[in-house]
Simulated scan of single mutants.
Amino acid sequence: MIVLLIALGAAVGAPLRYLTDRAVQARHHSPLPWGTLTVNVAGSLLLGAVAAVPADPALTALVGTGFCGALTTWSTLSYETLRLTRDGNRHLALGYALGSLLAGLGAAWVGYALTHAVTG
Rank of each mutant, 00 (worst) to 15 (best):
38 T>M: 10
52 A>E: 10
55 A>E: 02
47 L>N: 05
38 T>L: 02
47 L>K: 03
71 L>T: 09
29 H>I: 02
35 G>V: 06
43 G>K: 07
46 L>K: 07
26 A>V: 08
31 P>K: 05
58 A>F: 01
70 A>G: 14
39 V>T: 08
33 P>I: 06
35 G>W: 00
34 W>S: 10
63 V>F: 00
49 A>K: 05
22 R>L: 14
22 R>Y: 04
49 A>M: 13
26 A>W: 04
48 G>H: 12
69 G>Q: 11
35 G>F: 04
48 G>V: 10
32 L>W: 12
26 A>E: 14
44 S>W: 01
58 A>L: 13
38 T>V: 14
52 A>L: 09
34 W>K: 09
25 Q>F: 05
47 L>A: 13
46 L>E: 02
25 Q>D: 15
70 A>Q: 09
63 V>P: 00
36 T>L: 12
47 L>R: 01
67 F>H: 06
29 H>A: 15
55 A>S: 14
21 D>F: 00
62 L>S: 10
66 G>H: 00
37 L>V: 12
26 A>H: 13
24 V>I: 15
61 A>W: 02
43 G>L: 08
69 G>I: 09
28 H>G: 00
19 L>H: 13
24 V>N: 04
58 A>K: 06
23 A>D: 10
45 L>V: 07
40 N>K: 13
68 C>A: 10
65 T>K: 02
22 R>S: 09
69 G>F: 09
31 P>R: 06
52 A>G: 14
29 H>T: 14
47 L>F: 15
27 R>M: 07
48 G>L: 12
64 G>E: 02
31 P>W: 01
30 S>Y: 07
58 A>C: 02
45 L>N: 06
51 A>T: 14
33 P>T: 07
48 G>M: 12
61 A>Y: 06
69 G>K: 08
56 D>I: 01
34 W>R: 12
32 L>F: 15
45 L>K: 03
63 V>C: 01
44 S>H: 05
52 A>N: 08
32 L>D: 00
49 A>R: 03
55 A>L: 15
53 V>P: 00
19 L>A: 14
48 G>C: 13
47 L>S: 08
41 V>Q: 07
51 A>W: 10
47 L>V: 12
40 N>C: 12
51 A>N: 13
30 S>G: 08
53 V>F: 06
54 P>D: 15
40 N>L: 12
37 L>S: 03
69 G>Y: 07
59 L>Y: 07
23 A>P: 03
51 A>I: 09
46 L>P: 00
23 A>I: 05
70 A>M: 11
60 T>F: 00
25 Q>T: 15
62 L>P: 06
52 A>M: 10
65 T>L: 07
34 W>C: 08
69 G>V: 09
48 G>A: 13
55 A>R: 02
64 G>T: 05
23 A>T: 13
46 L>H: 04
55 A>G: 05
61 A>C: 11
50 V>Y: 08
56 D>V: 05
53 V>K: 05
40 N>G: 11
58 A>V: 03
60 T>N: 02
70 A>P: 07
69 G>N: 11
